[in-house]
Write a protein that binds this DNA or RNA. Sequence first.
RNA 1: GAGGCUAUAGCUCAGUUGGUUAGAGCGUCGGAUUGUGGUUCCGAAGGUCGCGGGUUCGAGACCCGUUAGCCUCCCCA
Length: 461
Amino acid sequence: MKPSIPTGTRDFSPGDVRRRQYILKTISTVFELYGYQPLETPSMENLTTLMGKYGDEGDRLIFKILNNGLNNPVKAEKTRAAFENVLTGKNDPNLTERALRYDLTIPFARYVVMHQNDLALPFRRYQMQPVWRADSPQRGRYREFWQCDADVVGSNSLINEAELLAIYREAFNRLGVPGIQVKINSRKILAGLAECCGAPELMADITVAIDKLDKIGMEGVEKELLERGLTEEQIRFITSYLAIKGDTGAQLAEMASLLAGSDMAQRGITELQDTIALHNQLKNKDWDSQLVVDFTLARGLSYYTGIITEVSTTAVKMGSIGGGGRYDDLTGLFGLKGLSGVGISFGIDRIYDVMTELNLYPDTLATSTKVIFVNIEAEAAPAILGYVARLRQAGIASEYYPDKAKFDKQMKYADKRNIPFVGIVGSDELAASVITLKDMRNGEQKKLNAAEIVDFLSKAQ
RNA sequence: GAGGCUAUAGCUCAGUUGGUUAGAGCGUCGGAUUGUGGUUCCGAAGGUCGCGGGUUCGAGACCCGUUAGCCUCCCCA
């Protein structure tokens, strides 16, 4: 049988894992700097927790888990009825009642409601775990991928928004990803647009269409709006909305006058202005990313209500590598009303792909073991095991090639593993109680005793 | 859900209008070299040409079906 892995998943070899851990470590360090605490939730949730939270398309993409014990003859009738139910496109708990998590936000909301009595609000948490989507894979899209979320619940302050934007910029600055654009918009402005053109019920259709502006152009957007049931007059209004350009201040002022008829939109504009002003107090001059207002930014998830944000890079052709926003009543879905939240997410797999394509990792990630002792003289085993024990005690990663093999083969092994030093203890060295230490990068060799080798390798790069 | 492309050695791929026994590079193993890696040189192993059917004297190639993978749209990180 030819081994394979499911579509849209991948193996990560040792070097890959080091690169991914570097990304995760960099981001978690920034999260911690901003006071966020780690959280983990189960890979699977009850299906009822997830269904209906991500829109129709989202529901379709949830990976469901088949119940165990379906072959139980006692339940055969129920199971058959459940299967009929599923054939009509519904879910049935007699067939499936659990699913793999689709994102980290809904499980977090579920967690907050379940642990509300133990939490000190406002509660800031970060979470770095895989999520699963039953989507058909393509470039930058996987069925299993990692997200890295930071959310805060129990605070309405825009300081949170301003800080989360700062987290994006700080993290991508530390990772050294070029061409980063952090785009922001407000759901309230989008709602105001729908309101002002007299089609509040078509807000979703309008946002989906205008979100594609940079992809399909103004004509494409107009065509799509028409198909989605907007009138010519409404489309003209949306066109004038999309035509607003210039620097941030001017754009916001112009938008305020265009959407003068909507209180909702005015609130959204004020929130954007305030968020940017707060962010400007926090920002670091060294960050070379851009914070840009983008009125076409929509974002799919239906639960957002305030500021929304999305991150992309101009350096590589790739979809968004992060996104987030405010959701006023997320926990309300689970019975806890009046708790507002705001959060962001880093798409680790896309960030990893971008950084791999641009080769943005520090060289130091490659090294692991510092010295390997070759196995050429069986009698030397006790002495060498003593050496590696001392080296490890001193914090130096050391190995002893476990099998007696040809010298040549062991040297090739050390070379392939990129191990910088090789320790040689044959009969001569054993008799003299020394180690011949070879630096694989320049070929130089020297004889050291046990104390000297610990000292030397502690200092050696 | 709609459309396009691909499937040949462990990996990446070549294979001429259909013509003898299926090719390369990389990797693996052995040797040059039983106490010295990277660079060389020699040799070896490794194939149901995705699967099933059809056309043909003859199919890796052409046709039909099927499965899987990749890509685009939709949507998303």
